[in-house]
Amino acid sequence: MATKIRHLHRHHTSPVSESRTVQVIAIFLCLLFMALFLILPLWSVFIEAFAKGVGAYFSALVNKDAQSAIRLTLLVAAVAVPLNVVFGVCASWAIAKFEFKGKAFLITLIDLPFSVSPVISGMVYVLLFGAGSFLGPWLKSYGIEVLFALPGIILATIFVTFPFVARELIPLMQDQGTGDEEAALSLGANGWQTFWRVTVPNIRWGLLYGVLLCNARAMGEFGAVAVVSGKIRGKTTTIPLQVEILYNEYNGAAAFALASLLAMLALLTLVLKSFLEWRFGDELAATGRH
């Protein structure tokens, strides 16, 4: 009897699952696609990077301009990511926990950078702070350069990356509701204690997930930054811009050496992201939505 049941069980498939052949074909097609479009390019990045040997690879990385690009990229991310964390937490707090007019509009606004081409985002800052604008010359009279300088790059990066944290936290906080906060308040905690001891721990993994994606994009952003940076070598080039410059100069090995850094960042992000999804999937609102 027992063997019979097991036997039946093995052959019993769910009514929605396809036959074995279809499954195999579907999986194979997926793998083929991924190999062709994701793994092969990634692989070729590293092949090209090491095309002239390990020595050339490292000398490309310690090159003065390359070092400056790496420093600039890290600096931009170090400013843009924390600011977007603050903004993202504020926005999702407001949206999830309060009712106010214009809420739907704010949600749409947060999504704007996702739907606008990064080049346009950069152009907006050129219009705002360029030579012919009102703000540009005014700030310049105080000695503040925005366009073709660090502030412009940071502004453009913030703009492009600001949906990531908020988008991750809004559904999570809406889902969690205000019950825990009410409980904390009823137990005598003040707003500050409630925020740090109850709200933040409740969203920490979701927040980390958002930070991860935000950081990856901040370091990898090309379009918007390209428009506002002016690509002044050794001064306003971030890693992606430096890669393009080197590539256009037919310096493939050096270009791919730098590109390999971004590729490694992508891989690291992917690993951490998968780990978070695997370990804290129930505490993330939108697993794998991006």
């Binding site: 409980a183 009823s186 905690a189 721990p201 409740n202 920490r204």
Partner: peptide
């Protein structure tokens, strides 16, 4: 200074039972 008990408990999920019960005094 009221004690409020919620339908869906609203326990702090990242704290142990002891930390949950201590919360009101520790804040």
């Amino acid at each position: 200074n009221i004690g409020f008990v919620f339908q869906h408990y609203a326990l702090f999920r990242h704290m142990t039972i002891l930390e949950n019960v201590s919360f009101g005094l520790s804040v």
